[in-house]
Design a protein around this nucleic acid. Sequence first.
DNA 1: CACTTGACCTGTCCGC
DNA 2: TGCGGACAGGTCAAGT
Length: 326
Amino acid sequence: MPELPEVETVKLGLNKLLPGLTVKAVTHDWANSFPNADADVKKFLIGAKIKNVRRRAKVLMIDLSSEHSLVIHLKMTGQLVFVGEPTNTYFADRRSYIGEEKNQSTNYDIQSTTEPTARFGAGHPTKSLIGELPDRSTRVTITFIDGGQLFFNDQRKFGWMRLMPTNEIMNIDFMKKVGPEPLEQNFLAKNFIERLYKRQNSNIKAVLLDQSVIAGVGNIYADESLFAAGIHPASIVKAVPKKKLELLYQELRRILQLSIKNGGTTDRNYVDALGRRGNYMDMAKVFRREKQPCLTCQGEIIKIRVAGRGTHICLKCQKLYKVRSR
DNA sequence: CACTTGACCTGTCCGC
DNA sequence: TGCGGACAGGTCAAGT
């Protein structure tokens, strides 16, 4: 599921591939994936040149020369995959990136056919998860004059893409209420704890998942960071010692950064801008490891439900902090 | 007001 | 083998 590290990885890839390309044609076959597109696509997308790609929380923004942007949310199963080699040689960087990445894919194969194969079982895909595009999950196809195509695939059709004036993006409801970026330099432990205390009577996992408290954390990184900090996800925020919250802050940031370095987590669908799996799943300590031994204490990882989500924990390593009642 | 549940969707997996 | 149902989880809207 694309969370902060996955969306960041897509952003980094697209930023090496798209800037400078000019849109030639757009097709979309599922209205909800690109609502009210027709009129604006002609005016602001066809013929526009791509300037750059940004991310805020789990939202991607592709800025165009038309002063409009494509705003994209991948939700659960969305993918943005670039295929082809643009002939526009004045962006030599982009060409070398594609070539370089093709060679690097060998490394990905070696890594994912050793230890991880045992984890995922035989037959688990080790290379690109993407075949020929478009496929049946393709919702939007953007073709460039310079060559190459960008495919927006979304199996479950939860994701969306919309075109809007660049300077109005921050006015949409989500952007107005979304919390700070956890990896920002000036986001300190005390800021983190202050934000959590906005919902101090709730269980800590629900609060981590709340985008208005902290941006970009989803189910994977909530479970992983709570394990790393030794906090049971059902703990009530105000009952957790401050020292533990500081540790959670450090572990959350460490894990998000480590995941970005490893291209994010591919649970089922997620791929980067070139269609490749992410490698963080191999490093996950609890996520999707139910019934397997805890890597710290050898106890069994169990799966429970917290905040309406599947939640992976080690009961021995994660302490439950509850408010005393009598 | 704060929190929980349902809706949006499709593919996969499990049990009968 | 086929089929129904549960499940996966990001976000918004509706309900408690």
